[in-house]
Simulated assay, not measured.
Amino acid sequence: MQVEDTKKDFLIVGFGVVGLSLAKHLLDQNTSFDVIANLKPRASSVSGGLLNPVSLKRLKLAWNADLFHFYAVDFYSSFTQLLGQSYLQDKPIYRIFSSIEEQNLWFSQPESKPINKYLSSDLIDLAKVDNKFRSAKVIDSYLIRLRELISDFSNYLIGSSRFIQANFNYADLHLSDSCVKYNSRGYKHVIFADGYQVINNPFFNYLPIYGNKGEYLIVRCTDLSQDKIYKPSKFLIPLGQGLFKFGATYERDFTDDLPSASARLNLNKELEKFTTVDFEIVDQVSAIRPTSKDRLPISGQHPKHSSLFTLNAMGSRGIMSAPHLAKNLINSIKTNETIMDQVNVNRFTRKHFKSSPSLY
């Protein structure tokens, strides 16, 4: 097989929030790369797009929130100069209390607790929703227009000959001591950012990564404010032009990635309980989030093939964690920076990896 004379540094497989984060860091570092992806909507483009440091169900800080959150804000802001528009919107989340107990929990957080800086101390009355126990605001929450960002950034990379629009074919990947060959192109490193599709990846499908199906309703409700993100049982997220996204569900047992009638019914019932104004369901979307056995991301090098890497299992917090973890992985490859212990793929190697010399 003849390989092009010009060998690039990286091939990124997949272009959700992880692939996007990897590509942006490599672009900023003036490092050569290609992305290969089919751009079919997956978990990232279907997600709510929330950049929220607080777990509102348990009222705890998300894992590594202080490190990841503000880094992500700067990261998404940096696309404004590159692509000519802003994808980061300052949108407050209003936690709608369903009981006095929930309200008391919010306001009983000690001032010394790190979460306290993200919780407003003001009780708020919201109009046109069931708000009898009132609400309070999350400080420093944002909304990322991730679907538009993925589309615009992929078009930018296509225009600069860094994006291959195709399904990745593992049979076309050939490993040697000097480089990795994919079709007629050569690369020094391959990073798989393939999300739940890792189940079809012969190099990393040994990892304990599981699917979690999430579904949203897209509703039209012109009577509610587009300046707020509402959080009763689930998130009601403004999309503009009177549209909102309501969800998401978390389903471990599923047979496909298609919208389901049961999720539509349950989400509709929950939204009816919350709103006091009319709404119209205009669409329903779904996708499968990848999550690991211990619910932490997975990052690092293949145990046998030193040129292959993975960054996966972002769960529901990928928008916040992917930018920093992508930079950490790239720097580990280029400058031997240490991969964060809690996400290092090595934690699963001894128990889950079995070399298969007959295949790879």
Rank of each mutant, 00 (worst) to 15 (best):
K7Q: 12
K7T: 14
D9W: 08
D9G: 05
L11R: 00
L11G: 06
L11C: 05
L11I: 03
L11M: 07
L11E: 01
I12L: 01
I12G: 03
V13E: 09
G14T: 03
G14R: 02
G16N: 06
G16T: 01
G16D: 07
G16R: 04
V17N: 04
V17P: 09
V18P: 01
V18C: 11
G19E: 06
G19K: 05
L20E: 07
L20M: 07
L20G: 07
L20A: 03
S21K: 04
L22S: 03
L22T: 03
L22Q: 08
A23D: 03
K24Q: 12
H25K: 11
L26R: 02
L26V: 07
L27R: 15
L27F: 13
D28V: 14
D28Y: 05
D28H: 11
Q29W: 13
Q29D: 14
N30E: 15
T31G: 11
T31Y: 04
S32N: 10
S32C: 10
D34R: 00
D34V: 06
D34C: 06
V35W: 10
V35S: 05
V35T: 01
I36H: 08
A37V: 03
A37I: 02
N38D: 15
N38W: 04
S44R: 02
S45V: 10
S45I: 06
S45A: 12
S45R: 05
V46M: 12
V46E: 11
V46H: 03
S47W: 03
S47Q: 06
G48W: 02
G48V: 01
G49E: 10
L50E: 09
L51T: 04
N52K: 05
N52S: 04
N52M: 02
P53A: 03
P53N: 06
P53Y: 01
V54W: 02
V54E: 08
V54C: 07
K57Y: 10
K57R: 14
K57Q: 13
L59Q: 01
L59T: 10
L59N: 09
K60I: 13
A62L: 15
A62C: 14
A62K: 15
W63K: 11
N64R: 15
N64E: 15
N64Y: 04
N64C: 11
N64T: 09
N64G: 13
N64A: 13
A65S: 09
A65K: 03
L67A: 14
L67T: 15
H69Y: 06
F70G: 00
F70W: 06
F70N: 14
F70E: 09
F70K: 13
